[in-house]
Amino acid sequence: MSRLLRAGLFARAVLFTAAVHSALFIVLIQGFSWFTPPKRGGEPISASVVFARDIGDWRAEDLRKREGAARAARQMGEALARQKEERRAAEKLAQQKRAEEKEKKKRQKQLAERRKAEQAERAEQAAREAENKRKVDAVWRRAAEDALSALIGRIAAKVERNWRRPQTSRAGLRATIRVNVARDGSVTGARVTRSSGDPLFDQSAERAVLKASPLPFPKDPQYYEFIDTFDFKFHPDEL
């Protein structure tokens, strides 16, 4: 009895072990063949190897078998469910990923659009600034024009006061005197660059500039720093 009992126990243990292994095996198979079509998973497990054929208690065995099969089936169902669950999760993940992708694309598009808008705005700003600068420049230019013409008027008046025209000069004489000035307006050099052909006329023009030294420069020489050369064109209008 005890032998029998021992043998029966042994057989049960073997059967149990085999069932567990086969279940695990199936799970393993199923696990490895994750992306294989699901119908293959439906193969009967009854083909498993029976180690104790000589055991007479088929009922028990059958029962055990049935229990094991049920368990296996349950396990398989669980595995399938899990598998399904996992597939769903994966699908969900993929969906999520797609959504994320889409969202990302959308964001990128928006970003590009924003950048474009910003660029346009910047260009507009630059144009506005350029226009502004042009306006400011025009104001300074006008101011400088006025200042320069006033300066020229003062200088011309002083030179004219100092120009003693030769009484013998013919009409239509023209002479140009190039004059270098220091920043205080004092004449540092004068020479005839275009002769009238009448030496006395040329001399009178050169002398007029020298006599007018210092030319009436404004108090702020810094404004006129760059003005250091003048061309005085002498051409009497009423000879």
Binding site: E160, R165, A208, K233, D237
Partner: peptide
């Protein structure tokens, strides 16, 4: 700078 001188 060019300056015209016409009167004397």
């Amino acid at each position: 700078v060019t300056i015209d001188v016409t009167r004397g």
